[in-house]
Design a protein around this nucleic acid. Structure first.
Length: 421
RNA sequence: GGAAGCGUGGCAGAGCGGCCUAAUGCACUCGCCUUGAAAGCGAGAGACCCGCAAGGGUCCGGGGGUUCAAAUCCCUCCGCUUCCGCCA
């Protein structure tokens, strides 16, 4: 969420920036709403102040004076109530408006709104070449007997997966490897968090109110809870409505959780295999930092995600998304795309974003320096990595002529085997 | 699910409907003292909102009500604790 005064400051250049991502900001409406809200607050404050003074003077007043004072106090009570009511209404309107305005893309982002407009940052590793026709992960997985999609559909429907035997073991191994990499080498603290969260938490990170249709929701009696689409939600909201001392920043948190996505609007895309599921698991990285440091911290975060790719020996490239293609809460996003021989394409495997203070304002994550300076924190997050897509890449990049799959060396201590056959 | 109790400042803990602008202690910050520290003494200090500022307003778990006036009375919701029941 934006600070309306900053948004309206011409120096912010908000209208142009938001237009780059296809959002048209109605400055006049916002200005009008803000100033009427402020004057309602002022009127209420003034009346309440007088009301208090009058109430205090009632006690020692002479009887005839007293009646007059009480009369005046009754009047003021009405004024206060009216001003408060007006404030409440306008405040709600203002919040609705502000909650629907996306973050401002940084100027360094390329123009455009499609994947094709992304800017290539670098590539790492050689896409493997094969002297045979490489299979995709579904064919590989089924031949190896580690993947059972028909039964997943029987259990839950399309876009679910069942892994079996060494497939399940490999999934577990990937998760353990990633967690240990990030906790032992990259300085992250591991958390185990709820995967069902309330509406406030979903609003704090920006999934709500705009993207309700992307979420799975549960309802039992009066209780409504949402299934998290990413551990970003619980990890970032851990510090909602808290003031953090700047000395304890940056915070670096990780968690391995299931993620649930409705995938509304992606009908027909990636219907095959493990690439796009309603439920998958992911090791997520979250950083909470001082506002001025957020851009630099994004490079740090990206480095941690890349370190995982490199340790696994997976060929990938990094792209900077164009202004029109970044998520609602982000001000800049890098995607890591892994080479998938089965598709002969680079496909997204990790998204690393800097949210600036956008989420912190919504969630109320404040900072206070030793000198007493107060502000909002900046938040960042990135996948480090999603287990399913990583498994896809390992299968496809590691496949051999005989249909077996070579397991990356770093995973062998966790799997206990170095080959799927 | 049933019963009872409790929610006050960073923590602990007072608080007859109006002098609560919330006592006191601990912790904290800054002085004095000291070679340095501790102790002692003195002073100070919260958060949020409106305002360029001066300043004003709000905050005793949340919301509502009674009253000229609520931390204090009433209702309701939430959370915590204890006992019972149930349960992995």
């Amino acid at each position: 969420m934006h600070d309306p005064r900053v948004l309206l400051d011409p120096a912010t250049d908000a209208v142009r920036k938001l237009a780059r991502r296809g959002f048209s900001l109605d400055v006049t409406a916002l200005e009008k709403l803000l100033s009427s809200r402020n004057s309602a607050i002022q009127r209420g404050d003034d009346a309440r102040g007088e009301s208090k003074r009058v109430a205090t003077s009632v006690k020692g007043a002479a009887p005839e004076e007293r009646a007059q004072l009480v009369e005046r106090a009754r009047e003021l009570k009405g004024v206060v109530a009216a001003a408060e009511e007006e404030h409440r209404t306008l405040e709600a309107e203002l919040q609705d408006l502000l909650l629907g305005i996306p973050n401002l893309p940084l100027d360094e982002l390329p123009d455009g709104a499609s994947e094709d407009d992304a800017q290539l940052v670098r590539t790492w590793g050689e896409p493997p070449t094969f002297d045979f026709a490489p299979l995709d992960h579904v064919d590989l997985g089924e031949r190896l007997g580690i993947l059972d999609l028909p039964r997943a559909t029987k259990l839950s429907g399309p876009r679910f997966a069942v892994l079996k035997g060494k497939g399940a073991a490999l999934e577990r191994a990937i998760a353990r490897f990633l967690l240990e990499l990030h906790t032992e080498h990259n300085g992250y603290t591991e958390f185990s968090v709820p995967t069902l969260v309330n509406r406030v938490s979903m609003t704090g990170t920006g999934q709500l109110p705009k993207f309700e249709h992307d979420l799975f929701k549960t309802g039992v009696g009066e209780t409504e809870l949402y299934l998290i689409p990413t551990a970003e939600v619980p990890l970032t909201n851990l510090h909602a409505k808290e003031t953090l001392a700047t000395e304890e920043l940056p915070l670096a948190y990780t968690a391995h959780t299931p993620c649930f996505r409705s995938e509304a609007g992606s009908y027909g895309r990636d219907t095959r295999g493990l690439v796009r599921l309603h439920e998958f698991s992911k090791v997520e990285l979250v950083r909470v930092v001082e506002a001025e440091r957020s851009r630099a911290e994004l490079e740090v975060l990206l480095g941690h995600a890349e370190a995982a790719m490199q340790a696994l020996g997976l060929a990938y490239r990094v792209i900077k998304l164009p202004a029109g293609d970044i998520g609602f809460s982000a001000q800049i996003t890098y995607d890591i795309e892994v080479w998938l021989p089965g598709q002969q394409k680079y496909r997204e495997i990790s998204s690393c974003s800097d949210f600036g203070t956008f989420q912190a304002r919504r969630a109320g994550i404040r900072t206070k320096s030793k000198e007493g300076a107060r502000g909002f924190a900046a938040t960042l997050n990135g996948s480090g990595l999603p287990i399913g897509r990583t498994l896809v890449a390992i299968l496809e990049q590691g496949q051999q002529a005989d249909g077996s799959v070579q397991i990356p060396d770093v995973l062998v201590p966790y799997t206990g085997f170095d080959k799927l056959s």
